[in-house]
Simulated assay, not measured.
Amino acid sequence: MRMMMVGAALVMMTSAAMVSAALADDDDATGSQKLAQQGRDDYWHCLAREYSRGSNQGMSEQDFARSVAGACPSERQYYRVALLDYLTTQYPAIDAGAHLATANRAVESAQKDIVTAFVKHRPPQK
Protein backbone atom coordinates (compact mmCIF):
# COMPACT_ATOMS: atom_id res chain seq x y z
CA MET A 1 0.00 0.00 0.00
CA ARG A 2 2.82 2.40 0.85
CA MET A 3 4.45 1.73 -2.53
CA MET A 4 1.14 2.56 -4.21
CA MET A 5 0.96 5.89 -2.35
CA VAL A 6 4.54 6.72 -3.36
CA GLY A 7 3.71 5.84 -6.96
CA ALA A 8 0.61 8.04 -6.87
CA ALA A 9 2.64 10.91 -5.46
CA LEU A 10 5.23 10.56 -8.21
CA VAL A 11 2.57 10.52 -10.87
CA MET A 12 0.95 13.59 -9.33
CA MET A 13 4.22 15.49 -9.35
CA THR A 14 4.96 14.58 -12.95
CA SER A 15 1.56 15.64 -14.21
CA ALA A 16 1.51 18.71 -11.98
CA ALA A 17 4.81 19.82 -13.51
CA MET A 18 3.39 19.32 -17.00
CA VAL A 19 0.25 21.32 -16.26
CA SER A 20 2.20 23.96 -14.33
CA ALA A 21 3.94 24.95 -17.55
CA ALA A 22 0.53 25.80 -18.99
CA LEU A 23 -0.34 27.76 -15.86
CA ALA A 24 2.93 29.63 -15.46
CA ASP A 25 2.77 33.40 -15.21
CA ASP A 26 5.81 35.64 -14.70
CA ASP A 27 5.84 36.65 -11.04
CA ASP A 28 2.19 37.52 -10.50
CA ALA A 29 -0.21 34.66 -9.91
CA THR A 30 -3.62 35.77 -11.10
CA GLY A 31 -6.83 34.76 -9.39
CA SER A 32 -7.79 32.50 -12.27
CA GLN A 33 -4.35 30.86 -12.18
CA LYS A 34 -4.70 30.13 -8.47
CA LEU A 35 -8.15 28.65 -9.03
CA ALA A 36 -6.85 26.47 -11.88
CA GLN A 37 -3.98 25.26 -9.71
CA GLN A 38 -6.34 24.57 -6.82
CA GLY A 39 -8.66 22.69 -9.17
CA ARG A 40 -5.74 20.62 -10.45
CA ASP A 41 -4.60 19.82 -6.92
CA ASP A 42 -8.11 18.89 -5.75
CA TYR A 43 -8.61 16.63 -8.75
CA TRP A 44 -5.24 14.93 -8.25
CA HIS A 45 -5.90 14.37 -4.55
CA CYS A 46 -9.23 12.78 -5.40
CA LEU A 47 -7.60 10.56 -8.05
CA ALA A 48 -4.93 9.57 -5.52
CA ARG A 49 -7.66 8.49 -3.08
CA GLU A 50 -9.28 6.49 -5.88
CA TYR A 51 -5.89 4.91 -6.68
CA SER A 52 -5.38 3.91 -3.04
CA ARG A 53 -8.70 2.16 -2.49
CA GLY A 54 -8.26 -1.42 -1.43
CA SER A 55 -11.15 -2.51 -3.63
CA ASN A 56 -8.97 -1.83 -6.67
CA GLN A 57 -6.80 -4.85 -5.97
CA GLY A 58 -7.33 -7.47 -8.63
CA MET A 59 -8.94 -5.04 -11.07
CA SER A 60 -7.90 -5.20 -14.68
CA GLU A 61 -6.36 -2.14 -16.30
CA GLN A 62 -9.54 -1.58 -18.30
CA ASP A 63 -11.80 -1.82 -15.24
CA PHE A 64 -9.58 0.56 -13.29
CA ALA A 65 -9.52 3.00 -16.24
CA ARG A 66 -13.34 2.96 -16.36
CA SER A 67 -13.46 3.49 -12.61
CA VAL A 68 -11.09 6.46 -12.81
CA ALA A 69 -12.98 7.97 -15.75
CA GLY A 70 -16.12 8.09 -13.62
CA ALA A 71 -14.44 9.08 -10.37
CA CYS A 72 -14.30 12.56 -8.86
CA PRO A 73 -16.92 14.18 -11.12
CA SER A 74 -17.18 17.47 -9.22
CA GLU A 75 -13.40 17.85 -8.85
CA ARG A 76 -12.90 16.98 -12.52
CA GLN A 77 -15.48 19.52 -13.67
CA TYR A 78 -14.14 22.24 -11.36
CA TYR A 79 -10.61 21.67 -12.69
CA ARG A 80 -11.80 21.76 -16.30
CA VAL A 81 -13.80 24.98 -15.80
CA ALA A 82 -11.07 26.71 -13.77
CA LEU A 83 -8.40 25.82 -16.35
CA LEU A 84 -10.69 26.96 -19.16
CA ASP A 85 -11.26 30.27 -17.36
CA TYR A 86 -7.53 30.75 -16.85
CA LEU A 87 -6.68 29.98 -20.47
CA THR A 88 -9.45 32.28 -21.73
CA THR A 89 -8.21 35.08 -19.48
CA GLN A 90 -4.56 34.55 -20.35
CA TYR A 91 -5.06 34.03 -24.10
CA PRO A 92 -8.26 35.85 -25.13
CA ALA A 93 -7.40 35.86 -28.85
CA ILE A 94 -7.38 32.06 -29.04
CA ASP A 95 -10.63 30.31 -29.89
CA ALA A 96 -12.57 29.06 -26.86
CA GLY A 97 -12.82 25.62 -28.48
CA ALA A 98 -9.04 25.33 -28.44
CA HIS A 99 -9.00 26.20 -24.74
CA LEU A 100 -11.68 23.61 -24.03
CA ALA A 101 -9.66 21.00 -25.92
CA THR A 102 -6.59 21.88 -23.82
CA ALA A 103 -8.58 21.61 -20.58
CA ASN A 104 -10.00 18.26 -21.68
CA ARG A 105 -6.50 16.99 -22.54
CA ALA A 106 -5.29 18.00 -19.06
CA VAL A 107 -8.09 15.97 -17.46
CA GLU A 108 -7.39 13.01 -19.76
CA SER A 109 -3.69 13.22 -18.98
CA ALA A 110 -4.34 13.07 -15.25
CA GLN A 111 -6.54 10.00 -15.73
CA LYS A 112 -4.00 8.32 -17.99
CA ASP A 113 -1.19 8.97 -15.50
CA ILE A 114 -3.09 7.44 -12.59
CA VAL A 115 -3.95 4.35 -14.68
CA THR A 116 -0.31 4.03 -15.73
CA ALA A 117 0.77 4.16 -12.07
CA PHE A 118 -1.85 1.55 -11.20
CA VAL A 119 -0.58 -0.83 -13.88
CA LYS A 120 3.08 -0.34 -12.97
CA HIS A 121 2.61 -0.83 -9.24
CA ARG A 122 0.01 -3.55 -8.99
CA PRO A 123 1.10 -6.99 -7.90
CA PRO A 124 1.66 -9.52 -10.68
CA GLN A 125 -1.47 -11.36 -11.81
CA LYS A 126 -1.55 -15.07 -10.97
Rank of each mutant, 00 (worst) to 15 (best):
V107E: 09
V68I: 11
E61Y: 13
A96R: 10
D26I: 06
Q77A: 11
V6M: 07
Q57L: 08
S32P: 05
A71M: 00
R105Y: 13
Y78S: 15
A82M: 05
R2I: 14
Q38W: 02
A65W: 02
T116R: 10
E50L: 02
M1C: 06
P124Y: 14
Y91K: 12
W44P: 08
P124V: 15
T30L: 04
L35Q: 14
D42I: 05
Q62I: 14
Y51H: 05
E50Q: 10
S15H: 12
I114Y: 04
R105I: 11
L87Q: 08
A93K: 06
D25C: 11
S60G: 05
L35C: 07
D95A: 06
V115D: 01
N104M: 08
D26N: 04
M59I: 11
F64N: 00
R53Y: 07
A106Q: 03
G39E: 00
F64C: 00
R105V: 15
G97I: 03
D85H: 03
S67G: 10
A21T: 11
Q38D: 06
D63V: 11
S60T: 14
M18F: 13
A103N: 06
M18A: 12
P73M: 01
A101G: 07
G54I: 01
T30E: 02
A117N: 05
M4V: 12
T116V: 13
D28S: 15
M3S: 12
L84Q: 08
S60Q: 02
L35E: 09
P73D: 00
N104D: 09
C72W: 03
G39D: 00
S60C: 02
A17N: 05
T88L: 06
R49W: 07
P124I: 15
Q33R: 10
D28K: 09
